[in-house]
Design a protein around this nucleic acid. Structure first.
Lengths: 366, 366
DNA sequence: TTGCTCTGGTCACATCATTTTCCCAGTAGC
DNA sequence: GCTACTGGGAAAATGATGTGACCAGAGCAA
């Protein structure tokens, strides 16, 4: 957990590009140039830095609306009225469809620490809750908020695919927390569900299990799709387990539906190992099994994909995957500080590999 | 030949270590610490940089003659500058025996928002984790911390009774989060477990149940003691339910112990209604009942005393008590702002009354 | 029109700073 | 003695920056 002494100001960690941007911006406001700016190569000599650095700086200014960049032409100053307001914009917005109380602990912890760090660096943060379901309504709400407030960048948490696409198409930089849809080009921070599920299936196979099943909500979110992918991959990769079989059990989250689908599964090809995606479904599954006379882990082994406090404190403790206490907050803070200082992030997923926590619900098949 | 316009200052190109050294030096001269500096690893968290960077910074300061570095010992200030008496102490410390990841969501949420508010008002916050178990060790750790840092006030979260007493006897103002022991005179913010359990017992009685039981950890913390009290009170108050009987099942938290004690209970006076104090024990109890052939809510009704996300998302949803989303953070922030602005709070409990959330695990006894 | 030369756009690669992850040795308190 | 914490230190991974080269569009002049 981070803590700040009153008199301590954090090292700014300003990248060279940001410093160069500051210098140039200052020159602009001092009226050093009018209309046309020096060329990139000229700036390199003046500021004694390399061209990529100058380029990042200039594009930062372009994003602030201070200058206009077009290939082949000299960079131009924009009219003063267009530029003054953006400069002071230090507001970061968390756009989410979830109410705070429904968030996973790790995510909320990450967001809290991120806010603390950003506050220490002089940024303001705000949470914008968009009611889920109505995609167009979400979008309108975001657009209206962005029109009324100068926003530096956004963090997207469990928002609809269309909203992700909207951000990808517009100029406001954004970081996606959790699953970013494959077609959407945005930077994201997520747990590597695919590797997790591949590893879980591998663990089961190593323990002698041959009939595996993945119990996963039919949500369509990218994380769950990746889970299915990884789960199946484990069997494809290991040709030595030719007789092994993996089933995907997609459900809608209700106990009725889960029960019905497990009924079908157990009648057809009764599995001896279950990987359950959501913590809350773990208990539904265990209760279902008990009602059927099956016990965990005596007859069926079980692994939970996600982490939850209850999974550890219950007994027998449930095998699951968890991430180091500080990695998520840490990586999130780092990414955001990078985003606000550089103005943009690479549009690629940042993945976290959880560690396997061996509880007492996984057993070698005898 | 580079010609530099007078108004343009070159980007500084300061290394991170140098920036960190500046920060620490400033902290030293401001009198943030006396005698001993925080450890290198502690600085890493505080300044959000890696250890080699901090090490370079500290060795820079050592070369300047500001500090003394020796292996194995804490780094010392060489010429401890007299603290200026004007130096206003604005540090607020959260003393807790729990690691952050083990906290209840509501509590962590409250703490996070409190920290945000305090930061906005110019206060700094820090978390001091005292390992549980060793009461004397806790106390020494707190004393040492308070000797090394100027602390404005403290927030106590799930600390031992003796530590509560220590704060009550000393001059550092403190607010207790959660259960304050009856003999200790400190202000506290807590959920009114006594009323909750009284209400739960009343609800069971109103549904026709006559054999009630409260499953509660034998922790000795005040909240659990108050729970027992309230649970029993409900029966005393209602003379019309003369034949009703309430049993307290104190356990140590393990599934074995809970099972054994429930075994005895069901052999003796089988209850039809259970109030379970901790969310994680709810599932242990339900699984126990199922193994025994008893089903919730068909044969046994169940209410959870505390709130947890899983209780709502599981199905059937489990009846429990919950507080309005913002009340806890709100009340906590208000109390702390009052504490820091007035210097003290009335030494009385501030109680929050949760609302009953009717799930599908409570049923009229037929 | 044709070519020259300026502009920014982009890539591969080298270099350096920083972070991460270890393990070691000394100190203090039990 | 032990344990837990401190600083000491190095190898490897990561990331930021610098270098050089080449491309494509813009503007200008012959």
């Amino acid at each position: 957990m981070s803590s700040l002494h009153p008199s301590l100001t954090l090292p700014k960690r300003l990248s060279l590009s940001a410093q160069a941007a500051d210098t140039i911006r200052k020159g602009i406001f001092d009226g050093t140039w009018n209309e046309l700016l020096p060329s990139e190569r000229r700036f390199c000599e003046m500021l004694q830095v390399s061209r990529p650095t100058i380029r990042r700086a200039l594009h930062l200014l372009a994003r602030e609306g201070v200058i206009d960049i077009r290939q082949g032409r000299r960079n131009r100053l924009l009219s003063p009225c267009a530029r003054t307001s953006v400069w002071e914009c230090r507001l970061i917005v968390l756009v989410t469809a979830q109410v705070v109380s429904q968030m996973h602990f790790v995510v909320y912890q990450g967001i809290s620490e991120m806010r603390a760090h950003l506050t220490e660096h002089g940024f303001a943060t705000e949470i914008l809750v968009c009611p889920p379901g109505n995609a167009r309504g979400q979008q309108r709400r975001v657009e209206e908020f962005l029109r009324q407030n100068r926003v530096l960048c956004c963090v997207l948490l469990s928002v609809s695919k269309s909203l992700q696409e909207w951000f990808s198409a517009h100029s406001v930089p954004a970081l996606v927390l959790g699953s970013c849809h494959p077609e959407v080009k945005l930077p994201s921070l997520d747990i590597d569900q695919r590797s997790v599920c591949r590893h879980a299936a591998g663990t089961f196979l190593g323990l002698g299990h041959r009939q595996l099943a993945l119990v996963v909500p039919d949500s369509g979110v990218a994380g769950d799709l990746a889970s299915e992918q990884g789960f199946l991959e484990a069997l494809e990769q290991r040709s030595s387990y030719g007789n092994a079989r993996a089933t995907i059990v997609r459900h809608n989250g209700s106990a009725q539906d889960i029960g019905a689908r497990l009924d079908r599964l157990f009648k057809d090809t009764p599995p001896t190992a279950l990987l359950v995606a959501k913590p809350e479904h773990v208990f539904i599954v265990i209760i279902y099994l008990l009602k059927r006379g099956l016990s965990v882990p005596d007859t069926v082994s079980l692994i939970a994909r996600d982490q939850d406090h209850v999974l550890e404190t219950v007994s027998p403790p449930i095998s699951h995957y968890q991430i180091e206490a500080d990695t998520y907050p840490h990586r999130l803070s780092r990414l955001m500080l990078k985003l606000v200082s550089q103005g943009a992030l690479a549009s690629e997923p940042n993945l976290i590999f959880p560690k396997f926590y061996a509880g007492a619900t996984t057993r070698r098949l005898v």
